[in-house]
Design a protein around this nucleic acid. Structure first.
Lengths: 133, 133
DNA sequence: GCTTGACTTAGAGTGCACTCGAATCCCTAC
DNA sequence: GTAGGGATTCGAGTGCACTCTAAGTCAAGC
């Protein structure tokens, strides 16, 4: 078994990263296949070894997913980052467009939450009443 | 073609309701099959005729869907409503549980939005800088 | 009376994001 | 040296919520 020392030198295994990010190894491989992760380094026997930068990136990906950004947009963003400098404007545009969608979704969620609260109020106030649906 | 008068008397057609709710006729039939809508009345030739109460209910369903309540829970709720009085406590519990989930999701969304804002900030402030990912 | 178009049904297909299976490989411990 | 456990790959399977197709029925307008 690799010591912490060794891991620091050679990078984390896929199950280390799975544990740290809350994803499964399956999902990590799926993300890599889908182009969300730049090529992760391999050791002599072909096993993935993740750097801490890789892990940071994976965490960013999970956050973007958690806000509902679809895989294909995250891939686009990842591609831009991989292509390096010169496309920052496009990256910014992509993030801003997504931000706008998240804000819109938050608004809608807040509004619909009010309806739920209204219904809950009905059931609480007139629990023995007839017509509440 | 049915006049508005006629429609008021006989109920709305599926495409009327589709238009009014933003769903498609397909989705309305799907919801009915899935047990989300109590049996909608039919006219002589077997076509659905929706009452305004039906439409109200459909709108409530769309709002619950918009907050991410899964079909199976909406079905459960619809069943309770159909069963009539006596189960208000369960309806309330169902709505409150869902409310808690929505609130949790809102929180998480807010937190992740902050990360997006942070990234956007990076690109705005140091658009010409190197290391921003 | 016949076309047009909206409606009906059962059931198949789609898109998304995983999620899992099977076969195989390889390092470690006994 | 061999069993175990985890890694690899490709590709198939799953779950959800629609979304659409095909075959057929029916009412209204020309």
């Amino acid at each position: 078994m690799a010591t912490l020392e060794t891991k620091r030198a050679t990078g984390l295994t896929i199950s280390d990263v799975a544990q740290e990010t809350g994803l499964t190894s399956h999902t990590l491989r799926y993300y890599e296949r889908a182009g969300l992760l730049a090529g992760v380094e391999r050791n002599g026997s072909g096993h993935r070894r993740y750097t801490s930068e890789d892990v940071e990136w994976v965490i960013l990906v999970t956050r973007l997913r958690a806000t509902g950004m679809p895989i294909r947009l995250i891939r686009r963003y990842a591609e831009l980052v991989r292509d390096g400098e010169g496309n920052e404007a496009e990256r910014l545009a992509l993030l801003e467009a997504h931000r706008a969608e998240v804000v819109a979704r938050l608004d809608q969620l807040h509004r619909n939450l009010e309806l739920i609260d209204y219904k809950i109020g009905l059931y609480r106030e007139r629990a023995c009443d007839v017509g509440a649906r």
